[in-house]
Amino acid sequence: MKDQILVSNFIKTRSEKSFQKLYRAKTPHIYQMALRLSQDEAIAQELVQQMWVVAITKIEDFQWKSELKTWLIGILFNLYRTLRKRGERLVEVEEYSSESVQPTISTKMDLEGAISQLPPGYRQILILHDIEGYKHREIAEILDVSEGTSKSQLFHARKAMREYLKDDLNGN
């Protein structure tokens, strides 16, 4: 409800103040996600900036079929995918040889470190599913992939994450 009030106040007034309230309510979460996705402050800031330009351009068409946060995240991931298509080669599926290794995670930094080393495709699934708690159906919508792809990518992402954690523990 709070989001609806913020958005409706903004649409009514289009004022800087009403935008600031909306921005301040949503951006810390989105910014953290952009940082995890891009692993780069400058790119994260550019993504957040462009996300707000797109969101504010389209905000009157937003139908509230999803939460505002999910809609914003969808825009952010869309921008991130565009960026990747331009600059990076995608690493979608990589096979790892280890057999269901589940190393202990001793610190938050271990996990952040492992996430940062993941290929971008895996990273975005892991962030959406294991950090943000989205279901595969929702992830499929956000990323414009099938549920099966989302499940498969999560499987590989977790496998890769465990591999990196194991390497860290072994001091590699």
Partner: peptide
């Protein structure tokens, strides 16, 4: 893992 990170003040004014 933390879910939020305060963005730089400058970002708000740029946007």
């Amino acid at each position: 893992l933390s879910n939020e990170r305060t963005p730089p003040d400058l970002l708000e004014s740029e946007i």
